[in-house]
Design a protein around this nucleic acid. Structure first.
Lengths: 342, 342
DNA sequence: TTGAAAGCGCTAACAC
DNA sequence: GTGTTAGCGCTTTCAA
């Protein structure tokens, strides 16, 4: 039942020829006669020979593995990115080794440590929340210094000099808020549970600029910087205190909370309040009403990151690039042009 | 900038001592004097030495990697399982190498092929839909024959003799339907988009038995075996033709379609029709009304599978086990006890 | 307490 | 066309 794995050496002994002949035959070398090749390949099949990847890798100095470090696999955005990465990786015969930092600085350091021990040829990373808060990216720099190519996506930092794939969060948020303004919204709230992340800050800034551009003033009272546990309550409070006709929720939890809060207060979406949020399609399409969202194109981000990395693995190019992925607004039923009095 | 990775040999040369002394010092061997150890360890830190994992693995014959093959990472059930696996793996210092079969037989064979080349110490797998349809599991048997420990979860087969982690789909479905019956539902439909999967068949059978037990007859007309693209339309048709007061939707797509169909037909949930479905929490809680679901405990399944595998990796035990994970019904607003005329 | 050398499984330069 | 051998980076036995 438990056939042991057979090695080239054993195969050679069985066939009464040398290891190198076996190796070359298996690799279809031009040096070997067709007859021998055939004999060897037949035997290999018979004994179910498979080259030991570890040995091949050690020899070649390559692993054909890509390390991916993701803050939270339960977040569908990241799973979509992962999906994209895998599509490209698989097509180029790379395996992916996935680690989850669970937003922890410690875990992230450990992950990097582990993967840079020669387990992978390169790294694709989104920075953990805690690392962003601590503003500590030394572990990434070390990995880079060790000569491990790295591409960062979504959660990136200027502190590390490497390829990056990002969304233009500032401008997207700017445009999204402008979209709401064009719908004739006058009092637009922003709801966030990710203000500790760079992307959260950027989106908030973009929103701010759009508001200032349009109305020449920016009311901090309409901006909720909260967390998963409190966001619903805080949004309800806002609705209690202020007249609102538009909400821009800049992450999934904020979006879900915003909808709930508006319903609880008995307002109509989109007749009283238009909402644009962030959420994956399956959720957005099954909410009532369906939610107009900013589509982040996670799969595209993943594919782009993987391409970038594999490209770098293949060619020794030097210029570092930052790719910006375009987003767009997926129009659904939570937004509507308000009648304006003129 | 690009420090090359330093090896034991180089370290030895720098220090003017032998490789073996360096190796032993690094591994804190009792054979080496404290003084030398200290010297070596200091130098190792200075030159940022890290053992080459490939070499260590080749030497030890272990990889400390667990291979995971998942049919579809975009399915939240599987991402939850993956999360559970990673939690345990990380705590035991195992890396996970994740492959996606994307429900394809071909891809699954390739994945197995790849991973059983010595990349991993063991495998955790859920079978691809296509393989289940083809009823072809030879690739798993080969991997087993190669001596690679394997645990299957959720999508399993009797054809392969290995550890398994499953949910008792038959009995759960039986109990779920009974739950609907206890709510006084008399005409209960079943909606499925996974009839090609073993789990789908089991759930359908469990449902059938519950219906037969209660009513002494089973109406095939109330059973929709469809696919993602057509399920909504077929459910609407059913609602057009039959009087229904309960729906058991045995997968996420079916659940979403069932709710939509009922709403489109203008029936009230749960007043006219009670629905129990399968969906992850985030979705279930944000539907209108919130959806009563069968909770599959994906994370627990993942954790259990990982524990089983690591256990087997550590101890050379022989008996194969099948762990059954208990499910439960998460009560939400899509079900309600109907008033009964008596 | 330290070092030389073999060997994990494989490839490839170089001999024959 | 085939074989010998060195070596990838590491651990470990055995000798010094």
């Amino acid at each position: 039942m438990e056939k042991k794995k057979i090695t080239i050496k054993e195969l050679a002994k069985i066939l009464g020829i040398s290891v190198s002949t076996v190796s070359k035959s298996l690799n279809d070398s031009y040096e070997i006669s067709e007859k021998t090749k055939l004999k060897v390949q037949k035997a290999a099949k018979k004994y179910n020979y498979k080259p030991n990847r570890l040995a091949v890798n050690l020899k070649s100095g390559k692993t054909k593995n890509i390390g991916v470090i993701i803050p939270n696999i339960l977040n569908t955005f990241f799973t979509r990115v992962l999906y994209g990465i895998e599509r490209i990786a698989a097509s180029e015969d790379y395996n992916i080794i996935t680690c989850f930092s669970r937003e922890s600085y410690q875990k992230e350091v450990a992950n990097i440590e582990l993967l840079s021990n020669g387990s992978v040829d390169g790294l694709i990373v989104a920075i953990a929340e805690e690392s962003q808060i601590k503003d500590d990216f030394e572990h990434f720099k070390e990995a880079k210094a060790d000569g491990i190519p790295m591409v960062m996506f979504d959660r990136v930092t200027d502190a590390v000099h490497c390829d990056k794939v990002v969304v233009d969060d500032f401008n997207n948020a700017f445009n999204t808020t402008k979209h709401l303004i064009n719908l004739n919204c006058k009092r637009i709230a922003l709801v966030s549970t990710i203000d500790l992340l760079s992307v959260g800050k950027l989106r908030t800034e973009g929103h701010k600029k759009a508001i200032e551009n349009a109305f020449n003033k920016y009311d901090e009272k309409l901006v909720i910087k909260s967390n998963v546990d409190n966001v619903l309550q805080e949004t309800i409070s806002l609705l209690n205190n202020e007249k609102i006709d538009g909400i821009f929720a800049i992450d999934e939890d904020a979006s879900l909370a915003a909808i709930k809060a508006v319903k609880i207060k008995g307002y109509q979406i989109p007749n009283d309040i238009s909402i644009i949020g962030y959420a994956n399609e399956k959720i957005a399409e099954n909410l009532t009403p369906t939610l107009t969202t900013v589509n982040q194109h996670g799969i595209t981000i993943g594919k782009t990151a993987a391409k970038l990395l594999i490209d770098r693995l293949k060619n020794e190019k030097n210029e570092v690039v930052t790719k910006i992925i375009e987003t767009n607004i997926d129009q659904r039923s939570s937004t509507k042009k308000l009648k304006t009095l003129f």
